[in-house]
Design a protein around this nucleic acid. Sequence first.
RNA 1: GGGGCCGUAGCUCAAUUGGUUAGAGUACCGGCUUGUCACGCCGGUGGUUGCGGGUUCGAAUCCCGUCGGCCUCGCCA
Length: 595
Amino acid sequence: MAVAYNKRTHRCGELRRPHVGQHVTLAGWVNTARDHGGMAFIDLRDHTGITQLRFTPDHAAAHELARSLHNEDVIAIEGMVVSRGEWTNPKLTTGEIEVEVTNIDVLSRCDPLPFQVNDDFEAGEDLQLRYRFLHLRRPEMQEIFRLRDRIARAIREFFHEHGFVEIETPFLTKSTPEGARDYLVPSRVRAGTFYALPQSPQLFKQLFMISGFDRYAQIVRCFRDEDLRLDRQPEFTQLDMEMAFVQREDVMDIVEACVQRIFKDALNIDIPLPLPRMTEHEATERFGIDRPDTRFGLELLDVTDLMHEVDFNVFREAIDKGGVVKCIVASGGDKLTRKFTDALAEELKGMGGAGLPLTKVAQGAGGVELQTGIAKFLQPIAAKLCQKIGAVTGDTVFFMPGTNADACKYLHHVRTRLGTILDLIPKNKWDLLWVVDFPLLTWDEEEKRWASTHHPFTAPLDEDLHMLDTDPGKVRDKAYDLVLNGTEMAGGSIRIHRKDVQTQVFRILGISDEEAKEKFEFLLDALRFGAPPHGGIAFGLDRWVMKLAQANSLRDVIAFPKTQRAMCPLTNAPSPVSKKQLDELYLALKPLPNK
RNA sequence: GGGGCCGUAGCUCAAUUGGUUAGAGUACCGGCUUGUCACGCCGGUGGUUGCGGGUUCGAAUCCCGUCGGCCUCGCCA
């Protein structure tokens, strides 16, 4: 019989002992069905929880119908809340009661499922995405997206409370040089020309400052056509903000306050302020990367000077070429099996490395004795080495020769692996820090030119400005990256607000005056007409959700994400389009290369 | 573009390392069942071992190719 499903009296997670005796109307999905012949039970689920329904021959029509139900059928019921008495189920928040059903209405039957919604088995990820609407029905997914909502709302509220104006920026915009590959959108009205989807609203928010909005913030989608990773999707969401008349401390202060608010509202965790700060130089020297995970030690140590005395070709070559030898000292030797270190060395080779020289520290008759690996080369300086790097009996020392950048890259990987296998990474620790004073420019060896470390609009430090022409590699910038447990969560900078400096930076980047005019004339114009000093930041919202939800992948916190090959298994996008659509755009497809 | 792991029933996995008819749980179908709560019990359907080729007396297992998923380097101002 029909049930007024639009007049639900409660949700499925709400009923408690005080409701006993009430007539209620509930609706939801069949989580499980248990048929005992003369009596049947249904666990009814919605996003709030589960209520057990009881069906008996006292209400024969409802009872008969209930016995035919399957998982994920959609039903509405009327009934009376009754106490479970001795049959209380402590595993359910509603476990003290059940609903004696008098009337049931089957709203929608469910076909056999591609995977079960109500069990703990993880379906393959491609299946999850193909049937994403089912996967999102699971309580743990519901929890993630409600956390996402809390985080986004905390951010939005925070910025509105602090006088920021939310203004939208275009998605159909101009392709820019530098940076990531653009997603292009063909123009029909001006056939042969293309829009690009924004990699970020960077220039528009700078224009807002020049327009006098003073404080702007927007939660906005960004698009980058690059290869995907665990924590990289082609479209992702940023909290984008910008402030006028500020120095970088002003931006960092307000961002810190916002981060504190996010943790409080989303997880009820108190974050002490101010957050620690570290220069990019220190981060790289100590941890091998500009986004260090400071939850554990295993810091990098430079042993280049000691290795001058060592007769080991691999080290000698690196040093002769002006490189370094760095190392990591790890305790807990029994977990560092030959199998593990061999596999780690293989991983490094896969990354372009040469291998992983190592040795173990032991106690010999005459003092420190090194064993295995490259021990025989290092034995002459064993005592001196161990003293310098603080290695003691039982430790394993991992070495990496090469350019400083390579040694850092590979040892960072080694450090991360060691942290995991040695179980050094504390659970439920939230290590936030700022990394500052990046080099403004990074030398691109492949293209033999300077490239922006962040982007071309980042302001140099005032005290380094004089080196811009003479020694551009030495110039530090006014950028700041916010790092959480080794992941970059936000990045921003004070921007260039002087036209002459901006022109100079474009020139150093190899952007010709003509190209600058063609691509950025609107920005250079804006800088001519009264641009206040300004700066801002962008948070990777998806990454915040991933971190705070302790999810394994960005895909778990995006409702309809792409696979690694940038496909959507749900909609099958991207897909071919009709000849008519192409004709309207005056586009023709080239034949695909044969493999 | 490079390196690596994986692909067996609708789903999650196994198959003693190349050896009989590829199994289990779950889902699905039929039957029994009045206190279950991942209910239980009895019976049943369900397989081109991703695809193509090769080695072999014999291949899910080994080799080559290909497709797909994932991790990673490059790339991601």
